[in-house]
Design a protein around this nucleic acid. Structure first.
Lengths: 237, 237
DNA sequence: GTCATCATGTAAGCCGTTACATGATTGC
DNA sequence: GCAATCATGTAACGGCTTACATGATGAC
């Protein structure tokens, strides 16, 4: 009500340096090969379910931010027309196997259509450093499945030690969840109706399952044969 | 680049009527008993993990929005001091059992402290209608676990038919997820590294597990004995 | 000729977080 | 006397979604 003018504001919001999921995902995809915004959005929607209804209004500004940070750079701005588009070395930096795969599967195989001044971005050296930082960043406020899943998708870019830290962090978080669920079930908090009860019991079982999955990932990583990671042995049903 | 002035904007963003998780959660808690902002935030953080680091900067504006919509109303604004606070009929609208529980468990039992002009809100008739609408609302853009979990917590307020619709919607969504995971595993899309593979396999197994849980919920609901809902029979380990 | 898809952006608004501001009461 | 907890807000900012604007190309 009284609202004395705040005015000091000496620091004006620290630049949230390592931003959320989207930037990380974009950098991760650009590590694979240079891409333009439209294509990025498509792959983000299709491959990462988390970003299932991502809009252009998010992608282009995010690319703009990354560009102004010097994390990505346009390698073919304002180039118009089919011939020019074909000239872009789209598979330039790919290693043999992946390049061959992309060439056979991607939209580049069929004729390039609707080419209105594509702006193809590539990741810079600084971008690679930033990506590594973001991937290892532990201070993720919403330490949720989304953030973890995305990091797991890019886990191959981490050192084995950093991977272990990632897994352990996630495991600790899940243990915390589990503890919370169990306290709710034990009734130390509040009586639950049947739906709430079913939910916490299911949540708790799911957390246990996730934890043992992580235990397998951790074990595989420790055995220094991180290639043989495999998921859940088929359960009942 | 050219950027012709947009100016028409005849509609100016449709009032996102049924807003996300937070409003629904607040209304749901206020259905139980009147509460003030500080208390709401505490319970939201403790009971719903989804809102684990919810800040006051979210709670108070949300309450303000709900108040301006006529969904909640302050029943004791600007009342200061212990005596006045005690006079608030905090358990007024509770039915026997819950009231007795609250009286024995809540912070109201111990002496009221730090009482600086508490603003206690109660849900209005309109708020109850809005709550029902929001709870049944199917057009949830981010049809995720968070939204579903919250609705399940409040599922007792739904009609059996609406509950079934809720469960079926969630089930359909999970089936879609499962399909996506399976296609990724089958390799119709892109070759996966071991970490990605482990993730999609685990995700797919988790989705299967969620689906059979929902099947049990649906079955229980259809058997017209929705009280006997119970969660996962204990799995291995 | 018109529709779907490709392609890039901007403007406005909503909502969440962080930081700032204030101040009463209880326990040590 | 001082810290912790209780209690309510506002200012600034970030970033996402929606809606708007534009325009090329290929398939039918």
């Amino acid at each position: 009500m009284i609202a004395g003018p705040i005015e000091p504001i000496h620091q004006l919001q620290r630049r949230r340096i390592l931003a959320p999921v989207l930037e990380l995902a974009i950098l991760g995809l650009l590590k694979e090969r240079p891409m333009h915004g439209y294509d990025l959005r498509k792959r983000l929607r299709e491959e990462f379910r988390l970003l299932a209804n991502l809009s252009f209004g998010s992608v282009y500004p995010a690319l703009g931010r990354l560009e102004s940070m010097g994390a990505v750079q346009a390698i073919s701005a304002s180039v118009v027309g089919v011939a020019a588009a074909r000239a872009i070395p789209l598979t330039g930096s790919l290693s043999g196997e992946r390049a061959a795969y992309r060439a056979s599967q991607s939209s580049e195989r069929r004729a390039v259509r609707g080419t209105r001044a594509r702006k193809v971005f590539e990741i810079t050296t600084h971008g690679n450093e930033l990506f590594e930082q973001m991937l290892e960043d532990s201070s993720d406020r919403s330490e949720d499945i989304r953030a973890f899943s995305l990091r797991l998708v890019f886990a191959r870019h981490l050192s084995p030690e950093a991977r272990l830290r990632l897994f352990e962090r996630r495991r600790a978080h899940l243990l915390d969840d589990l503890d919370h669920s169990r306290r709710a079930i034990a009734g130390n908090t509040r009586p639950l109706d049947p739906y709430e009860r079913s939910l916490v019991e299911h949540t708790s079982a799911a957390a246990e399952n996730d934890i043992s999955w992580l235990d397998r990932l951790i074990e595989a990583e420790r055995s220094a044969k991180p290639v043989a990671v495999h998921a859940d042995p088929r359960r009942d049903r």
